[in-house]
Simulated scan of single mutants.
Amino acid sequence: MKRFILLVTAIITFQIVNAQYTEIINSKRPGFSESPYSIGTDVFQFETGMFYKTNNDENLLAIPKTYGGELFFRYGKFLEKLEFDAKITYQNDEIKNPFGNNYNEFGVSELAIGAKYLIYQKEYVDKSKEVRSWKRRNAFDKSRFIPSVGVYAGVHTNFLSEYYKDDAVSFKGAILLQNDFSDRLVLLTNLIADKITSDDNNYSYIVTMTYALSERWSYFIENQGIFKENDNEFHFGTGAAYLFSDNLQIDASVRTNFFEDYSFVYSSIGVAWRLDKHSDEIINKSSPLNQLTKKRKKRGNFFSRLFKKN
């Protein structure tokens, strides 16, 4: 219980000069949305997983099964609010042939690089210091509807296997929002323009609600909408993550849609691990000198999707 209180306190403390880094790993997994916060400077993070997808399509030509793996590498450098990343995906698609013979296409289907930056960090009043009014201390803070805001820019390279090559490189841009409604409940909203300059360009949103069950366990629910020129898709997902140690997280998730003519089930398991070389300065406001600074790692918070700033 004492550890949990320390983790929650880290969310609302204001004496930390730079609020990006947390002592506990900040993973993007297992959902598809992304927080506006970075992982902190001098942190190397690897997030990898295996996925399996089955399809039920009434069309004669379809992809009934897909499986593969992905690696997402994240690195914080130069500024606490800045993060660089790279993603590579390898997959194997089983193609349904209208003449009854199935065949496979496989290889690197995605290789992208990008960066994100925190534009605005929402700060909250520490109501635990309100001693004159129990009602004020426990009332919902309406300012929590104001999100923290980040931006993302990336490039889809064309260093792909022959089955997945595009006409040329394309670009991705996103607005990343995060609302911390409580110490346990967080809402992430992503507004995305993907594959800009490509014939396969699309616009999408991802909304993810994450809740911490305990120090170690959290779960999420997620809705994703993808809008293309001639087709729209809406996906729904859920999953959970377990914090194995400060630098290691294990997760699992599943997602699907509910269309009559087309449906799929996507499942994934994965891990996130980091090499933490971060050090930072803080200002200790409780010190009589009020200006005393020292080097140490910041006290972090629990599960990456919830108590993180990533």
Rank of each mutant, 00 (worst) to 15 (best):
G154C: 01
I196T: 01
V149F: 09
A174R: 01
T189M: 15
L191P: 10
D200A: 12
D183I: 10
D199T: 14
E162I: 04
R184Q: 12
L160H: 05
S161T: 02
D166S: 10
D194Q: 15
V169P: 04
D180Y: 09
L177Y: 11
A153I: 09
D183M: 12
Y152N: 01
S198H: 05
L188A: 12
L191A: 11
L176S: 00
D183T: 14
T189Y: 15
D200P: 07
D199S: 15
N190S: 13
A153S: 09
G150A: 04
L176C: 06
F181R: 02
D200I: 13
D200G: 06
H156V: 04
S198W: 06
V149Y: 05
T189C: 13
V151F: 11
L187I: 04
L191F: 15
D180C: 05
A153L: 11
G173M: 03
Q178H: 09
L187H: 01
N158P: 07
L191W: 08
G150L: 05
D166Y: 02
D194T: 07
Y163C: 07
S170C: 08
V169K: 00
A168G: 13
K172I: 03
L160M: 02
K195N: 14
S182F: 00
Y163N: 06
N179A: 09
A193Q: 04
A193M: 09
G154N: 07
H156D: 12
G173S: 06
D166F: 08
S161V: 04
Y152H: 06
K165F: 01
E162V: 01
F171S: 06
T157L: 03
I196E: 06
A174V: 06
I192H: 09
I175Q: 09
S198V: 01
A174P: 02
T157A: 02
S182V: 06
D199I: 13
F181M: 08
R184S: 09
L176K: 03
G154K: 01
S198R: 03
I175E: 03
N179R: 08
Y152K: 09
L176V: 05
A168F: 13
T157V: 08
V169H: 00
V151G: 03
K165C: 00
N179S: 11
D200V: 10
A153Q: 04
D183Q: 13
T197V: 13
K195A: 08
S198T: 07
A168N: 15
L188S: 12
I192W: 10
V169Y: 09
I192M: 15
R184K: 14
N179P: 04
I175V: 15
G154Y: 06
G173L: 04
K165W: 00
T157Q: 05
